[in-house]
């Protein structure tokens, strides 16, 4: 039971990060390996807002997510757009964007190391216990799971129930055809990239309420998010959420039943199983 709740909370946060990445990769076609750094930056911002201005991290999302949206818009326009224009084919863009975002990842990490140093940070927010089915859990975890759920539902409604969201999905299916029905593909790509950054940042501020973080942990989160995206199927919202929950549960189970040092091994086992048996993702359709 403990594993179930803790795993779900972890999975909820993973889901936001993975949704951010799936939008960036699925729609804007940029595999953003600096996404984890984006998350860590949001952790630091939430920490700073809470300790310096005593702004509640949950409300802080209202500041952090739009800021991350703007930052990622700028990254897309100034750094990624030239690569998109230059690339002759999808493979070339993939390699270029991977290398460029690696660069971005190291630069962001380097700057954060210089500003905050390498030590771990955490702060106390809503750390009183709540009882659920006879066990105690931190209120901060439950609150952040609730917030993550709300954000994920809002995203789903936006993508599947609004005109603008449908346009975003159209670009993810086929950029060429999308431009035929008068969708401004470059603008939609920039928007999706920025929205992905905003979602990840929201996940970061939630994560910071119950997790100790440091400047160099971003890459682990990027990796987990990537694995979730692949497990769920690129660009698939439901798949990403399900895969995130699965991963959160598997990790928590391995950490508490076998050894906390083997979480990545658990992640990889899932990853390999998916690669071998369903490379198109959990809900993905078979393509030629």
């Amino acid at each position: 039971m403990d594993i179930l709740v803790t795993g779900t909370v972890l999975g909820g946060t993973y889901a936001l990060i993975a949704l951010g990445l799936t939008l960036q990769y699925g729609v804007a076609r940029i595999m953003n390996l600096a996404n984890g750094e984006n998350l860590v930056l949001a952790c630091f911002c939430a920490f700073w807002l809470y300790t310096a201005a005593s702004i509640n991290p949950i409300l802080g999302i209202l500041i952090i997510a739009p800021a991350a949206f703007a930052l990622n818009w700028a990254i897309y326009v100034f750094a990624m757009k030239p690569l998109v224009d230059r690339a002759k084919n999808r493979g070339q863009l993939e390699i270029d964007s991977i290398l460029a975002t690696f660069g971005l990842m190291f630069i962001m990490q380097g700057v954060m190391l210089l500003v905050f140093g390498g030590q771990y940070f955490s702060y106390n927010f809503l750390s009183e216990p709540v009882r659920i089915l006879g066990e105690n859990y931190g209120l901060n975890r439950i609150v952040s799971l609730g917030a993550a759920t709300l954000i994920a539902i809002a995203l789903y409604v936006f993508l599947y129930r609004t005109r603008f969201g449908t346009a975003v999905r159209a670009v993810s299916v086929s950029p060429q055809s999308a431009s035929l029905v008068a969708i401004d593909v470059p603008r939609m790509s920039a928007f999706a990239f920025a929205l992905g950054g905003g979602l990840t940042a929201a996940g970061g501020s939630l994560l910071s309420t119950y997790y100790t973080f440091n400047s160099s942990m971003g890459v682990i989160f990027t990796m987990k998010a990537l694995i979730i995206v692949i497990m769920g199927g690129v660009g698939d919202v439901r798949g990403a959420v399900l895969a995130a929950l699965l991963l959160g549960l598997a990790e928590t189970a391995v950490a508490s039943l076998i050894d906390p040092g083997l979480t990545l091994a658990a992640t990889y086992t899932l990853f390999i199983l998916v690669l071998l048996f369903r490379p198109q993702g959990i809900f993905g359709r078979q393509t030629a």
Partner: peptide
């Protein structure tokens, strides 16, 4: 065998974590 049948991105991601994975297993 696990990754090279698939596209390049899968391979990059898999190898990105491989060192960390082997390290965890060896430590354990």
């Amino acid at each position: 065998v696990a990754t090279l049948r698939l596209s390049g991105v899968y391979f990059v991601i898999f190898t990105l974590g491989l060192a960390e994975l082997v390290r965890q297993v060896v430590t354990w």
